[in-house]
Structures are given as C-alpha cells and as structure tokens.
C-alpha cells in the first residue's frame, strides 16, 4: 500500500477509531465564520416565519457555495442561518407544457446530467460544465445562483437569454418576475429579502434555434472575466432574433438588444469578417463595461468582441 495510508490505519487495522469524547471547550476548535444560530427548516412556512421574526439578520442557506465562503471570510455576520436543503418541494426538473420548470433547490450537477435540460434547454446544458468545479456543482443550486446574482455567474445570463421567469415565494404569497427584469445591478435583484427563488420557468427552446455559450476565465472554473450566452434563429443563410447576453462585464447580465437587432437579417455568407465588423461597431457603442480585480473595462470590451466573433463564426459554420 502506498505511503499516503493514514498511519493510524497501519498494521491491518481496518476500523477507524474516533475520539467520541465530547469537548465542552470549543475554544480549541478552529472556527472561521462569526457565530450564528442554525435551523434546519422542515417547511416553507417555517422559513417564512423565521424570516418574519429575524428579518435581515437571517440568511437562507441553499447550496452555500457562495454564502459559506462569505461567512468564512467574515464578509457577512448573520444571527441565524435557515437551512432549506431539506425542502423537497423546491427540488426537481419538470416539463410543464411548453416550458421546463426547475426548482430553486435543484443542484447544478442535476441540470448538467438532466436529459430534459439536454433536449429542451441546450444553452443551459452547454453552460453547466463552465460553472466552477465538480465539487461545487454537486452542492450549488440554481436558486442560490439567481438570488445572489453574482455578475460573473453563468445561470443568470442563461435565464436572461432564454427569457425565463423567476417564481418567488414568501409568507405573503408568490409572484413571478421576468428574468429580463430581475437583475438590477451588482448583487441587486427584484427579489425582496423575505422571498425565496422557488422555481425558474424556462420556455423550451425551438429545435431550429442555435446556441453559443462560452466564457473566458483565468483558470477553468474560475469566475469569468467575460462570458457570452447567445441564441439565434437561422433561416437558410439569414440570421434573425440574435440574442446576445454578456456576463462578467458589469454588475449584471447585459442583454445587448441593439446589437442583436442590428445583426438580425444579416446573411452569414460571403465575408463573415465584414458582418463581424458591423456587429462589433454596434456592440462597441452599446456595451458599457466595468473593470474588476483582474481586467480593465477596456480589456472586458475587447473580450466581449472576441466572444461575439466566436459566436458568429460558430453560427456561420453551423448554418442549415
């Protein structure tokens, strides 16, 4: 056996021996997060009641892949964590007529491996492997990603591109907000603090539609410096309804509607570089990028051009 075998297991001992002794002196145990209370919620009503009691001092714990990091870094100090991971009503991927409804607690790995998503939401299927790393995708949830609204997150851009609807629930009832009206700015959304993302309703994508998803990251799985979720209809050689949603460029996903409109009707034949040039010209005017730690606004604008070129090149190569 190799040397990495724990020394405590040597000598043929197959049984791991633990210290079960209760240690009242917690001072010896390292902790990262500030102290908080914890409730394992067993019903949505319990979550609503606790939110009503504690307000902004309580946080909802879904996959925890961003919240736990923030707590470990002490960027947040709630009094209470309400763990919703046991709420099965918020889980699952189902067909509902011309849409696919994804429960807020559905984990990234489930979307990645879902046959329904692969068939009806190919853009999301393509985006999933780009989200962080396997261990993170095993825990992270779509509801968490959308509620947090990290500017570099993939799923917010996808739901904007696919014109999905976000279903929010609270003690006051439920309401639906269009994804295109949901993301307001940096970590700022239409969601009120007492609301949960219960589900995301995504229209099934027509078979004729083409998709492009790509992002540019310092390391595979890192937060994107720039990303693009794009869809288009191609009839013969002609593009229509080009939808370009950029992420990682500013505080929220950006739907470049003017650029999409300008490119609609363009034929993807002949000199593709000329079409790309025309699209870039509109894009340069429309996009407003913001610098982050790793890239300047100018670099982000450049990366947006690069991604747009790749998208149009892919669409041209795959036409009819």
């Amino acid at each position: 056996m190799p040397s990495m075998v724990s020394w405590r297991l040597r000598g043929g001992a197959q049984r791991v021996r633990y210290r079960y002794v209760h240690q009242p002196n917690w001072g010896k145990i390292p902790v990262k997060a500030p102290p908080f209370a914890y409730v394992r919620a067993t019903s949505l009503d319990q979550v609503f009641d606790l939110k009503a009691q504690h307000g902004d001092d309580a946080r909802i714990l879904a996959g925890g892949q961003s919240l736990m990091a923030m707590l470990n870094l002490r960027l947040d100090a709630p009094e209470l964590l309400i763990d919703i991971n046991g709420l099965d009503a918020l889980k699952g991927i189902d067909e509902d007529g011309d849409a696919v409804v994804i429960g807020g607690l559905t984990r990234h790995v489930e979307l990645e491996r879902s046959a329904l998503v692969a068939t009806h939401l190919p853009l999301i299927a393509e985006a999933m492997p780009n989200i962080a790393h396997p261990a993170i995708r095993n825990r992270g949830t779509i509801g968490g990603s959308i509620a947090l609204a990290d500017p570099a997150a993939e799923l917010p851009a996808c739901v904007v591109a696919l014109d999905a609807e976000i279903k929010l629930v609270s003690g006051a009832g439920e309401r639906t907000v269009k994804a295109r009206e949901f993301f307001h700015g940096l970590y700022d959304t239409a969601r009120n603090d007492d609301e949960l993302v219960a589900a995301v309703r995504v229209p099934k994508s027509p078979v004729s539609r083409r998709y492009f998803f790509s992002e540019i990251t310092p390391r595979r799985g890192d937060f994107a410096s720039a990303g693009l979720a794009a869809t288009v209809e191609i009839d013969g050689d002609t593009m229509s309804d080009l939808t370009l949603v950029f992420f990682g460029l500013a505080g929220r996903p950006i739907l470049a509607a003017r650029t999409g409109d300008a490119a609609s009707g363009a034929a993807l034949t002949g000199d593709i570089d000329q079409i790309i040039g025309q699209v870039h010209a509109v894009l340069d005017e429309e996009l407003e990028t913001q610098a982050d730690l790793h890239s300047s606004a100018k670099m982000k604008s450049h990366l947006a051009r690069v991604l747009t070129k790749r998208a149009l090149t892919q669409f041209a190569a795959g036409r009819s």
């Binding site: 633990y18 210290r19 209760h22 102290p35």
Partner: peptide, 21 residues
C-alpha cells in the same frame, strides 16, 4: 457518529478536530 457541534463549525474542521481524521 453523534455529536453536539457549534453551528458555525465547518465539516472539514469537524472531521479533523473532533474525529481526528
């Protein structure tokens, strides 16, 4: 394993510090 843990204790710290893993 049955334990009383501080709510803020990470799983990895629990495994290392409490269970000696």
């Amino acid at each position: 394993v049955e334990e009383i843990v501080p709510a803020r204790l990470n799983l990895v710290d629990f495994l290392r510090e409490k269970l000696d893993l």
